[in-house]
Amino acid sequence: MAHGDITHIDIPVSDMGRATAFYSTLFGWQIAEVPGFEGYPMWQAPNRISGGGLAPRGDGFTQPRSYVEVDSIDDTVAAAVQHGATVAMDKQPISETSWWAVIADPDGNMIGLYEGVTDAG
């Protein structure tokens, strides 16, 4: 993936079993937990390109969130803030070689940022 590509979409759910059955039946998504990411089943669309995760719904996470791949989260956050965004979640590690953060655009839309590589299968 390249800088600016949408790389992942998280969908907030209150019942993992119900959500897994719903999305796999309705859209044919393959949904499974990946070692190292237990409790966070990941989905893949039939095109084998689109994908994301089913994440627990909670305060501050009530709507689907897209993640955009960037070359540098630090640089992207700085530029976003300069253009009116706010930081909703500071940079956090996913693995030894990948990180994520969340910004809110000037309209309050949450946008996830992703930097690095993962061996999530």
Rank of each mutant, 00 (worst) to 15 (best):
V87S: 01
G53H: 05
Y67C: 11
W29F: 07
L54F: 05
G108Y: 04
P106Y: 00
S14L: 03
W43H: 05
V87I: 02
G53K: 04
G60C: 11
S24Q: 08
W43D: 06
M1D: 07
T20Y: 05
G4T: 05
A2R: 14
L26A: 15
Y67K: 06
V102E: 09
I9G: 00
A45R: 00
P46Q: 11
D10L: 01
G58R: 15
M1L: 03
V70K: 03
R48D: 13
G84R: 04
P46K: 08
I6C: 09
Q63Y: 12
G52M: 10
V87W: 03
P12E: 05
H3G: 09
V34F: 06
F22S: 02
A85C: 15
P93V: 13
E33H: 08
P56V: 10
S98A: 15
I111L: 11
D75M: 08
T97S: 15
S24P: 05
A120W: 10
E33Q: 12
S66Q: 10
Q63L: 12
I6V: 15
R48Q: 15
M110W: 10
Y114D: 07
P56Y: 10
G28E: 01
Y114P: 03
V77K: 13
D5G: 07
A85M: 04
D75K: 14
Q63C: 06
A2K: 15
F37N: 12
A79H: 13
D119R: 07
P46E: 12
A32Q: 05
G36Y: 08
E69H: 10
Q63K: 13
E38I: 01
M110T: 11
T25A: 15
D71M: 03
S72W: 03
A104I: 06
A78S: 15
S50P: 07
T118Y: 05
F22K: 04
V70C: 06
Q92A: 14
S14G: 14
M16G: 04
D10F: 02
V68G: 07
E38M: 00
I94D: 08
Y23G: 07
R65E: 12
T97V: 09
L54I: 00
W43V: 03
I31D: 11
P35Y: 11
G4A: 02
A2Q: 14
K91A: 12
